[in-house]
Simulated scan of single mutants.
Amino acid sequence: MAYQQSDLDRLDAAISSGVRSVTFADGRRTEYQNLDQLLAARKVVAAQLSMQETSTGAVVRRRVPYYRSGL
């Protein structure tokens, strides 16, 4: 599942207000048992967003070995 920046914002809002349930952008509603689970979910979403950013902006390079015969 691809997360959006709005999902991270909703998790931040839930953490700061003390609410344990979060409704994500795709309509899923998740209720967490405690603050530790909310923080873990925030870490997962933030990591996934950073991976999405680096995968779309990275330049793919190939290295092809070059050998000289030495003759």
Results as ranks from 00 to 15, higher is better:
Asp26Leu: 05
Leu38Pro: 04
Leu49Ile: 12
Leu35Asp: 12
Ala14Leu: 10
Ile15Lys: 01
Leu71Phe: 05
Thr54Gln: 14
Gln4Cys: 00
Gln48Arg: 12
Met51Ala: 15
Tyr67Glu: 12
Leu8Asn: 03
Glu31Phe: 03
Gly57Ala: 12
Asp36Leu: 06
Gln48Leu: 12
Arg20Met: 06
Gln37Pro: 02
Gly70Asp: 13
Leu38Trp: 07
Gln52Ser: 09
Arg62Ile: 08
Gln37Gly: 08
Asp12Asn: 15
Tyr66Lys: 15
Gly70Leu: 14
Thr54Gly: 07
Asp9Ala: 11
Ala2Asp: 01
Leu39Pro: 00
Ala46Tyr: 02
Leu35Glu: 13
Asn34Glu: 09
Glu31Ile: 07
Tyr32Cys: 11
Arg29Asp: 01
Ser21Arg: 15
Arg29Pro: 00
Arg28Ala: 03
Arg61Glu: 01
Val19Lys: 15
Gln48Trp: 12
Ser17Asn: 14
Tyr3Val: 11
Arg10Gly: 02
Phe24Leu: 05
Gly70Ser: 15
Ala40Tyr: 13
Gln33Trp: 00
Gln37Val: 02
Arg63Glu: 08
Gln4Val: 09
Arg29Ser: 11
Ser69Phe: 04
Gly18Gln: 10
Asp12Gly: 03
Thr30Ser: 02
Ala46Cys: 01
Val45Ala: 03
Asp9Val: 00
Thr56Gly: 07
Ser17Lys: 07
Gly70Asn: 15
Ser69Trp: 05
Gly27His: 03
Thr23Phe: 03
Ser17Asp: 10
Tyr66His: 12
Tyr32Leu: 02
Tyr3Met: 06
Ala13Tyr: 03
Ala40Gly: 03
Arg28Gly: 01
Asp36Asn: 10
Asp36Cys: 00
Val64Leu: 09
Thr54Lys: 14
Val64Lys: 13
Thr56Ser: 14
Ala58Tyr: 03
Gly70Ile: 09
Arg61Gln: 02
Asp9Trp: 02
Ala58His: 04
Ser50Trp: 03
Ala25Lys: 08
Val59Tyr: 09
Ser69Met: 04
Thr30His: 09
Gln4Asn: 03
Arg63His: 07
Asn34Arg: 09
Leu71Val: 08
Ala41Glu: 15
Arg62Ala: 12
Phe24Ser: 03
Ala41Thr: 15
Val64Ile: 15
Phe24Met: 08
Gly70Thr: 13
Ser55Cys: 00
Tyr66Cys: 05
Asp36Lys: 11
Asp26Glu: 05
Ser21Val: 01
Ser21His: 07
Ser55Tyr: 05
Ala40Arg: 15
Leu39Tyr: 08
Gly18Thr: 06
Ala46Asn: 13
Gly27Glu: 09
Gln33Leu: 11
Gly57Thr: 15
Leu11Tyr: 05
Ser55Glu: 11
Ala47Trp: 01
Ser16Trp: 01
Ala47Arg: 12
Gln33Asn: 07
Tyr66Ser: 11
Ala41Lys: 13
Met1Tyr: 07
Gln48Tyr: 04
Val45Leu: 05
Arg20Val: 06
Leu49Ala: 10
Gln48Pro: 07
Arg10His: 06
Asp12Glu: 09
Asp9Gln: 06
Arg10Ala: 10
Val22Asn: 14
Gln5Cys: 01
Tyr3Ile: 07
Ala41Ile: 09
Arg10Pro: 02
Met1Thr: 00
Tyr3Asn: 12
Val22Glu: 14
Arg29His: 06
Ala46Gly: 02
Val45Lys: 07
Ala14Lys: 09
